[in-house]
């Protein structure tokens, strides 16, 4: 069973790689039009030290951005979930903020905090990923059935007790659902900043230098490395979800 869980996705990836290779081969594309999977190992071999250094830069800034997004998102979600007035006040602002394409915010942030590259990258990763978290927490809290509250309130429990014993655990499944979306968003945020700002850090910068030098295999190698990091972080979230909200999973059938 668990072996199958590992083998099936790996087989799917191999099939995907083969189809990609076939597509490039069938069209006779040279690798400056589209690189094929067989171009990737040489690219990794050539730049492995850059991949390690820059991959780490991308990873830690994404994770920090995500952690800030979780803290901020949960706080905003709590405020909106518990207070009708705050929900009415903040919702339009949040939706408007989320609707602004972050690609347009990148140059503004870059000019606002010139040179603070790590800070800027974390900031964009945070800004792009906190929205789903805030919304899910606020919905989870505001849709708590009143009977749940009444059961504890009738015993004289405080609001804090109700939050810790009922509201928080009940919101966890929604929270993890949003976190899975936020992980991929945070990577987009980090890379937006890395590609645009001229500091040469992170996988985004490596991608940019591949573009400047017309090194297509390098560009594709960066994309694949980003995909792998995204998968890694996603499964970290899945593991956390199993630990903290495993009860919400129903056995199928």
């Amino acid at each position: 069973m668990s072996l199958q869980k590992i083998l099936v996705p790996i087989a799917a990836m191999i099939v995907f790689g083969l189809l990609w290779e076939l597509l490039v081969w069938a069209n006779g594309w040279p690798n400056y039009v589209m690189a094929s999977p067989s171009d990737l190992p040489p690219a990794y071999a050539k730049y492995w030290n850059l991949f390690l250094v820059m991959g780490w830069q991308t990873l830690w800034r994404t994770v920090v951005g995500l952690v800030v997004a979780i803290i901020f998102g949960v706080l905003v979600g709590m405020v909106m979930g518990f207070s009708r007035v705050m929900r009415d006040a903040l919702y339009p602002l949040l939706v408007g903020f989320n609707a602004v394409p972050k690609a347009t915010v990148v140059p503004i942030v870059a000019l606002l905090f010139v040179g603070a590259h790590d800070f800027n990258t974390v900031l964009i990763a945070f800004m792009i990923s906190f929205f789903p978290i805030a919304v899910s927490v606020s919905i989870g809290l505001s849709t708590l059935e009143p009977e749940y509250r009444d059961i504890l309130r009738s015993l004289g429990a405080s609001q804090t007790t109700i939050f810790w014993k009922i509201a928080l655990p009940k919101t966890l499944p929604e929270f993890f659902g949003a976190l899975k979306v936020a992980v991929t968003l945070a990577f987009i945020g980090t890379n937006l900043m890395e590609i645009v700002s001229p500091h040469g850090r992170g996988l985004g910068a490596l991608f940019d230098s591949g573009k400047t030098n017309s090194d297509y295999p390098l560009m594709f190698a960066v994309l694949i490395a980003l995909a792998l990091m995204g998968i890694l972080l996603y499964y970290v979230v899945v593991a956390l979800e199993k630990v903290f909200a495993g009860w919400a999973e129903r056995t199928p059938g």
């Binding site: 009977e147 504890l152 004289g156 655990p169 009940k170 009860w247 919400a248």
Partner: peptide, 26 residues
């Protein structure tokens, strides 16, 4: 509210993340 009251509703409102025993002990 006073703790000398016990309540049950049409909706059993059990906490899904707790076992039945833990629910009863709430």
């Amino acid at each position: 509210p006073r703790s000398t009251v016990g309540m049950a509703f049409q909706n059993p409102v059990l906490l899904e993340w707790r076992t039945i025993l833990q629910n009863v002990m709430l």
